[in-house]
Amino acid sequence: MVALVLGPIVIAVIFGFIVGTRIHLNLENSFKFTISGIIALIIGAILMAYGIGQFPVYNDLAIAATFLGAIFGLLIGSALLGGRAKGDH
């Protein structure tokens, strides 16, 4: 039965957005947010969410929806606000 509970997913996206705004990349040998890197991260996250199962809410989707929501919140936050401010951010 698929009865999607939206509240925890929305809060997970907001929570991930708060932490993701702190990401600031200025390294040469680091993981860059290119398209292939993001796709690999998302594929790994979906595999992990399938392994976790319906973890926080037990009659929901077959994958951990809040885990994926947190990953998307982190990516959105780092893409929108991360690394823009230079000094004290």
Binding site: P8, I11, A12, F15, G16, V19, L27, N29, S30, F31, G37, A40, L41, G44, A45, M48, I52, F55, P56, V57, Y58, A64, T66, F67, L68, A70, I71, G73, L74
Partner: peptide, 26 residues
């Protein structure tokens, strides 16, 4: 280490957020 640390940190942070949001059920 420098290439692998940031995606692993992403996954750890997302697991922590999932643990916090499931705190009253699990």
């Amino acid at each position: 280490l420098k290439i692998m640390t940031l995606p692993i940190a992403f996954i750890m942070i997302a697991l922590g957020i999932m643990t916090i949001l499931g705190g009253h059920i699990t």
